[in-house]
């Protein structure tokens, strides 16, 4: 489809290597942290751009985030997206998946689309919820964790890996599809494209612009507190002959770990 309008939902996250630390108030410290496009979202961006390159069409990026997200939006633009839309209001700082989905769904009324792509989950909170909630709010079909995608006419043909094998699904457009690793290998943007990305349009909307108000946004989840997992204890190597070692292992699993 030559004029396919692809909208990719993108979230900015910490790098996967980042060591998450909490301050005295139990809040995440972001000092010295590098931000990236959430890797699954990046697969979606890459796939969209490959489709844009293969058959024309246009790729837009939509994110919910403060102006700190501009840096990662530029990466998606440098990869080849045509334009970006960012929605922000300070009250969204603590937004849960429901609120984020509501904001995205409202913003999508302003952005034309035939196909919505997103990562299957953001690597920070791993909630897997936003694309599904967006689909729900807009009454669009949803396929999660796809590894292959092709569009002909107004139908998308997708594949997804399941425990039972590969599933092939045909879904009418417009639809929301979320990316699994393997959908596309993200490119490393070239320098001329990085330069061009600096000049590509980034549309910024406040809540009012998309017909929402802070008061109308009700969270579905309330965060009570954050804590980091206890550091892993060192492993133990049990010596002796295999027979002895197995006996000792079983004893420890029974008496110390109490799992048997």
């Amino acid at each position: 489809m030559a004029d396919l309008k692809i909208l990719v939902l993108v979230k900015q996250t910490f790098t996967t290597e980042a060591r998450i630390q909490l301050d005295a108030q139990g809040k995440i410290v972001d000092k010295g942290i590098k931000y990236v496009i959430s890797p699954y979202d990046e697969y979606a961006v890459e796939k969209a751009i490959q489709m844009q390159e293969a058959g024309g069409g246009i790729v837009r990026i939509l994110t919910v985030g403060s102006d700190k997200t501009l840096e990662t939006m530029r990466i998606a633009l440098a990869m080849g997206a045509a334009e970006a839309v960012r929605v922000w209001d300070p009250c969204l700082e603590t937004a849960d998946s429901q609120i984020t989905a509501q904001v995205i769904a409202a913003a999508m009324k302003k952005v034309p689309f035939d196909l919505v792509l997103a990562g299957k989950a953001a690597v920070d909170d791993q909630s897997y919820e936003v694309p599904a909630r967006v689909a729900g709010l807009l009454g669009l079909p949803l396929v999660n964790a796809i590894t292959s995608l092709s569009v002909s006419g107004t139908t998308a043909k997708v594949e997804r890996e399941t425990d039972a094998g590969k599933e092939t699904i045909e879904v009418p457009l417009p639809a929301v599809l979320t990316a699994e690793k393997g959908l596309a290998e993200p490119r490393y943007p070239t320098l001329p494209n990085i330069m061009k990305a600096k000049k590509k349009p980034v549309q910024v909307y406040g809540l009012g612009d998309i017909g929402l108000s802070a008061a109308a946004l009700k969270p579905a989840v309330q965060v009570l507190g954050l804590s980091t997992p206890a550091p892993r204890k060192g492993a133990a190597i049990i010596g002796g002959s295999p027979q002895e070692a197995v006996k000792e292992l079983v004893r420890r699993l029974k008496e110390e770990a109490k799992v048997l």
């Binding site: 790098t15 290597e17 630390q21 010295g32 590098k34 990236v36 290998e185 490393y188 943007p189 070239t190």
Partner: peptide
């Protein structure tokens, strides 16, 4: 040209994100 082997691409991303080619947490 953007012709980068996936190994080089990974090293670049690691240097970008963690300021070392292994990608180990910079802190």
């Amino acid at each position: 040209a953007g012709e980068i082997s996936s190994e080089a691409g990974l090293a670049f991303r690691n240097m970008e994100n963690a300021s070392n080619p292994w990608g180990i947490d910079a802190s």
